[in-house]
Nucleic acid binder design. Structure first.
Lengths: 215, 215, 215, 215
DNA sequence: AATGAATGAGCCTTCATTCAT
DNA sequence: GATGAATGAAGGCTCATTCAT
């Protein structure tokens, strides 16, 4: 009945992987150590043994999910810095939305759950990790608004764009989980077409930025 | 320690009130019947006595919170139907954001928790209750886009506006709850100034709608 | 919402009636005061008010059921004392079995439950009440066995007959309650034909008594 | 207070053993997991850990009790198939009665409780397990009645015998449990002398079968 | 090093009973 | 006299964690 001795680090990665999925789907509290260990084909005590507890596993698994996402979706969005500013904005938005929409990415789902039911365990790490991701976006906004734009103003625009990236996709996921037939038409299929969504957000936001610029 | 036997509706309302707060703060699963009863100065069995169980209390307390919010924030936003369309849009946005930002309103917080960790208990009621709230917003968007606008297009714009209403305020609440000092400057004070936020979202979105209109 | 003031003894009888049914169906422990009161269209506190508690209601309701049964099924079985001994035996057996099989008689069902899960509350009353019921049966057995029969022997035969009266009907009730299809054929329809059953038991037992007589 | 970690089957068997006793004495509903665990010198969560819940423990413990009984009391009663039919009948009856009377056998007590307050959990298993036990008895009855005997008739005789086996012993147990002194003389000591009882039932029933045969 | 048996705290729920009205 | 709101004890179950092996 003994597991084939596979380094021990093997199990650890399995646990991280399983933990990401479960935490992303259920959040910290509703996720159970038992389920995670089972999904990872590991002993029920493995989580405590390898990570010291549920909390540490939570933090570690978010880090793991984040770094995995980072590799798949490079923060530059694949657009060169020489491209026109509109194109770069579009790149940023598409990059963020793709990442959120990717069913293999778990970091944003975990953030969502953490925002809804804060454990306080991720607060620091998230801000340190996520903030830099939005730095290029801030630069672009500032470039579009001009040098004289107030910091306050930049923040407002950044918020508008961020919110547009998050909102529809989370809603889509919720409706996917709900059993009843969706009554609000036109939203749920959006998840399947991130490109259309990103196009819209880009055009919408470009106009928004420019309109508020002259305010 | 014995309660004076009153109407019986007294305790029931106390329970609903306490339940709203606790469910809004912790979500269904993390909330405990014990805490709710304690906050309502009632016995631990009171919740089951009056509502039959935690689940029924959950549904009932959302209904309670929703109706209370509805009274405080009339959906028309206080703007007459004769006003210019821009003004009406601003009224809608301000109404929604005020509602979400109000620390005495619990319905949107509960929805947020429900979206993150669906119990399935609110799915039907929410959609029946919330959807009508956004109907005037849809009308306004359609008015701005013109009659020829595709349904699909209206939905995208609606989503953009909705997301901008939700996003920043939820974020703000999260940071308020988090223990660590907020590292992202410029966002959290926004909660205190809903008007500024609504002004921005209105101008930003008006431009966005008009820009995508000619698409 | 107030009950029409109907003597107060009205409610008491309703309670007794409901209690018989519920106690007969579920036994003391599984029966709940709430269900009894509901069935009796009475307040949940009525049982305590009128009887002082669940236990007292239990005892009282058994007495009620027993006396009601006694009226419906006179212990003599309707056979005159002049009839031949075989006929009188048949009368006794038919009387007992009819009583047990009658769906309106609750006393034997309550006894059965009490035997399975003794509360100790009925022990005395049952023996005082039921024992006389079997006195004529004992006489008949003694008559059949002859004067020289040992007490011990009479008891054995009495037991054989009693058991045959109880057994099949309890079994029949059980199978009626079970959801799965009955796998033992030929027993459950017996409940519907008490006469056939009583005929069999009488003939079977007469032979039995006579056979052991010469032992 | 910590248990020495043994096989794990150790505790499981302790639990089964304790469960048999408690379930046999109190029935499913009145038995508490706490009492069972305490009797098994195990933690209160042990029952759930090893069996998944009270219901599963109930089913499993009945199976355990049944198989233990089966070993102690072989269904053939120790009489060879070549013996005269009367002797074989006696063997059957003695086997069944010994089993029921054995204070270490819990399966029939559990069945009795289950019949009085059906949980529905044992219905299937009981019929699958108990029915074969009575098959040889049926054969013997048919042999005694002759080939032309109606199925219906066989069933009646089987019932008569079964009832005589069950009845007196259950009654005896009840009186043993009752607190008040037994008022019905001559029955309770029977438990101590199963052989006498079985002799009587055999003779009584043999005569009964033969008497009804010519009907 | 790694397992799985075992634990104890905590949660939701049920129910007979009590008490103010 | 009679009601129904309210209580507290108890039960089954879940789950993160610990410990002997």
């Amino acid at each position: 009945m003994r597991k084939q001795r596979s380094d021990g680090q093997e199990t650890k990665r399995h646990l991280l992987c399983a933990a990401c999925k479960v935490f992303a789907e259920k959040g910290f509290r509703e996720a159970t150590v038992a389920e995670i260990c089972q999904k990872a084909n590991a002993n029920i005590a493995a989580a405590n043994y390898h990570f010291g507890g549920k909390e540490a596993l939570y933090v570690e698994s978010w880090r793991y999910a984040f770094e995995k996402s980072l590799k798949t979706f490079p923060p530059d969005g694949g657009i060169s810095a020489d491209a026109p500013v509109e194109e770069r904005l579009h790149g940023q938005i598409l990059s963020i939305m793709s990442r959120i929409a990717d069913p293999e990415s778990y970091d944003f789902d975990m953030i969502h759950k953490e925002m809804a039911n804060p454990t306080g365990l991720l607060t620091g790490i998230i801000q340190e990790s996520i903030h830099p991701l939005f730095k290029p976006l801030i630069s672009i906004i500032r470039e579009l608004l001009g040098d004289k734009a107030a910091e306050h103003h930049v923040n407002l625009c950044q918020m508008s764009i961020r919110a547009q990236c998050f909102g529809p996709l989370l809603r889509a996921r919720w409706q996917k989980k709900s059993f009843r037939s969706p009554k609000i038409p036109g939203i749920e299929p959006l998840l399947d077409d991130v490109k259309t969504l990103a196009d819209h957000v880009t055009r919408f936001s470009l106009a928004g930025i420019r309109a508020t610029q002259e305010g």
